[in-house]
């Protein structure tokens, strides 16, 4: 009990600065989200290539930055004792390897199939005529839905 009160005294003393921090982080999160969305709109219809990849890279960096601000300030981890921060953050470093290994594996599997599986390669180049834009009447792909096809 008294302990938790001490903990609060550490970072709850000056009211104004805490509120200012919340405001600052809110603005940062909103601005990052708006930048992400602007990049997303920019990417619409853009052909695959280096520029598109670069934009995706920027979006991922912004995503990580937003995650940092939420965890550090909203979840208050930045103001905790260093030992606690380490027990949370160090295990999460496993993700670096998970992401590297699994994405690498995925793209390797694609290369192998494209090289050694002509059927797979051919299937992924055949263009299909787009189904007409009507939606609700389209039972072809979902016969097993018995829900009525009501649509506004």
């Amino acid at each position: 009990m008294s302990q938790s009160h001490n903990a609060h005294a550490d970072h709850g003393t000056n009211d104004g600065s805490a509120i200012a921090e919340i405001k600052k982080v809110t603005i940062i999160l909103s601005v990052f989200t708006i930048i992400e969305l602007m990049l997303g709109f920019w990417m619409i219809g853009m052909p695959a290539g280096a520029l598109r990849l670069a934009i995706k890279g920027i979006i991922v960096i912004l995503m990580m930055a937003k995650a940092f601000y939420i965890v550090a300030y909203f979840m208050h981890l930045k103001h905790e004792v260093k030992n606690l921060i380490m027990t949370i953050v160090v295990p999460l470093l496993l993700f670096v390897w998970f992401i590297t290994a699994f994405l690498w594996d995925g793209s390797s599997f694609r290369n192998l199939r494209n090289t050694y599986d002509p059927h797979f390669k051919e299937q992924s180049t055949i263009k299909v005529a787009p189904k007409e834009e009507g939606h609700s009447e389209e039972h072809a792909s979902g016969e097993k839905h018995e829900a009525p096809a009501e649509k506004h």
């Binding site: 299937q123 992924s124 180049t125 055949i126 263009k127 299909v128 787009p130 189904k131 939606h135 609700s136 389209e138 039972h139 072809a140 792909s141 979902g142 097993k144 839905h145 829900a147 096809a149 009501e150 649509k151």
Partner: peptide, 20 residues
Amino acid sequence: LFHEGAWWGANPFLNADGTA
């Protein structure tokens, strides 16, 4: 999305390059 025919095991959307 469900009324467009999308659900677990059902995908009415084509790939971005027009393939199945």
